[in-house]
Design a protein around this nucleic acid. Structure first.
Lengths: 190, 190
DNA sequence: CAAAAATCTTAATCTTGTTCAAGAAAGGCG
DNA sequence: CGCCTTTCTTGAACAAGATTAAGATTTTTG
């Protein structure tokens, strides 16, 4: 159960056996059912979540009542609301499972203590945040430089298997247009 | 000259006098004129840049030849292209001064050595990347939930002094619409 | 297996913002 | 100070994608 996480850690840092044991002792393991909530809009986010397997989405509800997806997380990704967690503010976002998922929980309340005992984790998170930040700017790049249709085709090429995994209306939301428009695009060509 | 950087560092971590001296010995200071390039599209990004004062933009050129601004950085922000720097790939972006600016340069080539000598810097960058990543997702939130006009009004309220600082066509680009449209918005009301 | 819930499609109409094109202001420099 | 470059504005024609509404299909569950 912890294997995927430690494999991921070892891509970026080295750990002694002792350190591995310490880390394990600070983590919790959990299974969430499809549609189960990990965080609901208005709650203060209390943990960082590592997806062992499954699929999780983070979204908010617009004034018109539609759901807007901000992020997807699948196997080997972390998901949380850093704004809510860092400032202990109510979150604007809801985090919810899109498939039954196995997750590992790193609670904010003990994170500092863990980082003190295993400081190399600061490095691990620095590096993966660097990647996540770059990916996010990259996404802004695509939003601004491609049309909706181009964005869909590009995403489809880049992550063909992921596209199969989530309902199309969620994909449309993530890509920033309506499900009706996605339908239209798909009708135009395979 | 180093004072703003160390003040920023001290917001997130504590440093001994020794550590401060080590850090200083790894940094370079530079002044860039308005319109001077720090990185040009196609080059491999070799450093992370801290803005002591001034204003820097990061943008790319679309197929139609228009410039699309992805990021602004002002006093006390770092700017770089992490994708290019981490993977030593040619950058898709150009980083250019929008005002005469004083910057501090942390070169990729000596970054690792510095982090080994002052490991608490990993923590500093972890925290500021957490903020930067959150801000970037927040920006995606705004792009998806607000109209162009709403985005402009919101930005104008949030950063009134910054709006005065850059040409409107750059602001329009950053907000994701044309300068003509920004003109139209401004004509509608204050 | 049947009924209910969730998801996807189609088409007509409407909005937001783009594109072009041209001129008006403003700013910087010799 | 006057010219040249940069920036800003305006308006008409147009395009991308939203909205609404209805029906079709698929999936889930009792």
């Amino acid at each position: 159960m912890f294997t995927p996480l430690f494999n991921h850690l070892k891509k970026y840092i080295s750990l002694t056996t002792d350190e591995e044991e310490i880390i394990k002792s600070y983590l919790q393991v959990s299974t969430v059912a499809n549609k189960e909530y990990i965080l609901q809009q208005g709650q203060v986010c209390q943990a960082n979540y590592f997806i062992v397997n499954g699929c999780i989405r983070k979204y908010f509800t617009t004034e018109q009542g539609t759901e807007q997806i901000i992020q997807f997380a699948i196997d080997n990704w972390w998901i949380t609301d850093y704004t809510s967690m860092d400032f202990q503010q109510p979150s604007l976002y809801t985090i919810q499972a899109v498939e039954e998922s196995e997750i590992i929980i790193l609670k904010k309340s003990i994170e500092e203590e863990l980082f003190q005992r295993v400081p190399v984790l600061e490095r691990y998170f620095r590096i993966i945040l660097q990647r996540a930040f770059a990916a996010s700017l990259n996404r802004i790049h695509y939003i601004y430089s491609l049309s909706g249709e181009e964005r869909y085709r590009h995403f489809n090429n880049a992550f063909p298997d992921f596209v199969q995994r989530v309902p199309q209306y969620m994909l449309a939301s993530y890509l920033g247009f309506t499900p009706e428009f996605l339908s239209k695009i798909r009708a135009r060509k395979g």
